[in-house]
Computed example of a mutant assay.
Amino acid sequence: MQDALMRWYDTHARVLPWRVPPDALAEGARPDPYFVWLSEVMLQQTTVAAVRDYFRRFTERWPSVTALAEAEDAEVMAEWAGLGYYARARNLLKCARAVATEHDGVFPDSEEGLRALPGIGPYTAAAIAAIAFDRPAAVLDGNIERVMSRLFAVTDPLPGSKPELRALAARLTPEVRPGCHAQALMDLGATICTPKSPACGICPLMPGCAGRKEGIAADLPAKAPKKAKPTRHGIAYLVRRKDGAVLLETRPPSGLLGGMLAWPGTDWTEDAPLEAPPLATDWHDPGLEVRHTFTHFHLRLALRMAVVGADAIPERGTFMPRAEFRPAALPTVMRKAHDLAAGAWEDATGD
């Protein structure tokens, strides 16, 4: 099966901007650990399609880990906007600075050394060790979990079955070409052993797949029932000055959207939020509401709008000039509020 998997990968490996293809590896090329690390952080809970453009922009602007370490926090958070899970961006900077200052800009080449860095957990450490340094580390992402559960007919539901799946992945990890092995399993799960309607007929692991033999492959991996997500409520205050400047604040460094630019607003609570406007003015309720889903809850964010004069002094937040404001630099939920309110600014003035 290992030989069949490698033959398949050598022919069908996905072309990804952070990956060194098998033929280039055979000729002596080596992956850039910075590229591998950056892509793995970006890919956590995010699709390859969504990550491609972000990866390209990041590596064009900050082509090395030392360049990223020297970047301003606000610039990195702005480039990350829209990719979600913003704690990853904060940990990205912490890790880059640790590599730059404590390791002379060189990533450790072992799982143990990588796990000592900020924001790098067991999966990411194993992926970097295998892909960047060709260490025989057992990599277990969502695609590989699915392949393992089907290949060995593991019927216990996730997440409880993770330890067993990790042990199975470790058992199959070879000493030769472990980085290609890990990427081959990722590609197999992404293109053939897919969540729905797996293409078993063209799978290189089909002859040894216990799930297929038992007729249960398409039903695996089993998953424990998800708990219903609660709904939280909040208010966002969108303020525009008559010269076009908008009122924004930087959220606290920890917590959801930590360190990101945002519209001033209330806390997000399961009860009705208490009004907390950032300045005293005539507020307009356009009857608009942003709906957004985070990992653990749904959010319903009511909008309040106002247009104020140049002499307005906010109690919190800072006016950003129109020429400097980029809606794309806002996190997704805040950009939704901007887009939703774009046609209602005139109503806020009463004109």
Score class of each variant (00 low, 15 high):
residue 237 Y to A: 01
residue 344 A to W: 12
residue 295 T to I: 10
residue 234 G to M: 10
residue 305 M to K: 09
residue 320 M to L: 15
residue 14 R to S: 14
residue 119 G to E: 11
residue 350 G to I: 03
residue 83 L to P: 00
residue 201 G to M: 09
residue 110 S to T: 15
residue 17 P to Y: 00
residue 12 H to A: 15
residue 138 A to T: 06
residue 294 F to V: 11
residue 162 K to L: 10
residue 105 G to H: 13
residue 181 H to K: 07
residue 155 T to A: 06
residue 37 W to E: 01
residue 203 C to T: 05
residue 9 Y to R: 02
residue 50 A to V: 02
residue 137 A to P: 01
residue 171 R to Q: 15
residue 101 T to H: 13
residue 232 R to T: 08
residue 268 W to K: 14
residue 332 T to S: 13
residue 68 L to G: 00
residue 85 Y to D: 04
residue 331 P to T: 10
residue 208 G to P: 04
residue 327 P to V: 06
residue 109 D to C: 11
residue 312 A to E: 01
residue 59 T to I: 12
residue 129 A to M: 07
residue 131 I to N: 00
residue 221 P to H: 14
residue 170 A to I: 11
residue 323 A to V: 12
residue 259 G to D: 04
residue 307 V to T: 03
residue 165 L to E: 02
residue 292 H to S: 04
residue 135 R to Q: 13
residue 323 A to T: 14
residue 258 G to D: 09
residue 303 L to T: 11
residue 288 L to S: 09
residue 267 D to G: 14
residue 317 G to E: 07
residue 52 R to F: 09
residue 260 M to N: 08
residue 37 W to R: 00
residue 320 M to V: 15
residue 196 K to Y: 01
residue 184 A to Y: 03
residue 152 F to D: 08
residue 180 C to Q: 14
residue 57 R to G: 01
residue 144 I to T: 07
residue 304 R to L: 00
residue 114 L to Q: 02
residue 281 T to G: 01
residue 123 Y to N: 06
residue 226 K to L: 10
residue 188 L to D: 07
residue 143 N to Q: 09
residue 316 R to Y: 09
residue 217 A to I: 03
residue 132 A to N: 07
residue 83 L to E: 01
residue 63 P to D: 11
residue 222 A to E: 11
residue 193 C to I: 11
residue 218 A to K: 11
residue 241 R to L: 02
residue 227 K to Q: 15
residue 79 E to F: 12
residue 96 A to H: 02
residue 90 R to L: 03
